[in-house]
Computed example of a mutant assay.
Amino acid sequence: MAPIEEALDEPFECNRIEVRLISLPLKKPFTISRGEIKRKGALLVRIDEGWGEAPVLPEPIYNEEDSATAWHIAVDLAAPRLLELHEARGHLTLRDVCSLLDWIRGHRVTLSAFTSAFTVMVAERKHMPLAKLLGGVKDRVRLQHSIGLGSLEHLRREIEYAWSLGIEVIKLKVKPGRDEEQVSYARRLGAEKLTIDGNGAYSYRHLSHLAQLARRYKLWEVEQPFKPYDKVYHGKLASIAECTVSLDESVTSLEDVVEALEVFPKGRLGVNIKPPRVGGPLEALKIAKLSQEAGVHTFVGGMLETSIGRAVNIAVGSLRGVGEYLTSDISPPLEFYEEDLVEDTFTVKEGCVEVRSKPGLGFQVDHAKVEKYTVKAKEFKPRS
Rank of each mutant, 00 (worst) to 15 (best):
Phe299His: 15
Asp340Phe: 00
Leu304Asn: 07
Glu59Lys: 13
Arg215Cys: 09
Ala7Val: 05
Ser307Met: 09
Thr93Met: 03
Met303Gly: 02
Leu44Arg: 00
Leu101Ala: 08
Leu26Gly: 10
Leu152Val: 04
Glu242Lys: 13
Glu305Lys: 03
Arg356Val: 02
Glu283Trp: 04
Lys27Met: 12
Leu134Ile: 02
Arg20Asp: 06
Ser146Val: 12
Tyr204Ile: 12
Arg16His: 13
Ala123Arg: 01
Val257Trp: 01
Phe346Pro: 03
Trp71Phe: 08
Val45Ile: 14
Thr374Pro: 07
Tyr204Ala: 14
Ala70Val: 12
Lys38Arg: 15
Ala88Gly: 05
Val322Glu: 10
Lys28Asn: 13
Pro333Asn: 11
Pro359Trp: 11
Ser112Asn: 10
Gly351Ser: 05
Gly41Ser: 15
Leu152Lys: 14
Pro3Val: 06
Arg108Met: 09
Val141Phe: 04
Thr345Pro: 08
Ser253Phe: 00
Arg142Leu: 09
Met303Pro: 01
Gln224Met: 07
His154Ala: 12
Val169Tyr: 09
Ser99Phe: 08
Met128Lys: 03
Arg105Lys: 15
Arg205Gly: 08
Gly317Val: 07
His234Glu: 02
Leu213Gln: 00
Leu304Arg: 03
Arg205Tyr: 05
Lys173Gly: 08
His107Arg: 14
Ala238His: 02
Gly177Asp: 08
Arg95Asp: 00
Asn272His: 02
Leu285Trp: 13
Ala117Ile: 00
Pro359Cys: 06
Ser151Lys: 10
Gln182Ser: 15
Arg108Ser: 03
Ala377His: 11
Gly148Asn: 01
Val257Ser: 06
Arg188Pro: 01
Glu10Lys: 14
Asp344Leu: 08
Val355Ile: 07
Arg140Gln: 11
Leu165Gly: 00
Pro382Gly: 04
Glu192Lys: 15
Ser307Ile: 06
Cys243Thr: 15
Val251Thr: 01
Leu189Pro: 11
Trp220Ser: 14
Val120Asp: 05
Arg178Asn: 11
His154Gln: 14
Ala294Val: 04
Glu249Ala: 09
Ser112Ala: 14
Glu283Gly: 02
His72Lys: 15
His209Leu: 11
Asn15Ala: 12
Arg34Glu: 06
Val45Trp: 01
Lys372Ser: 04
Lys218Trp: 11
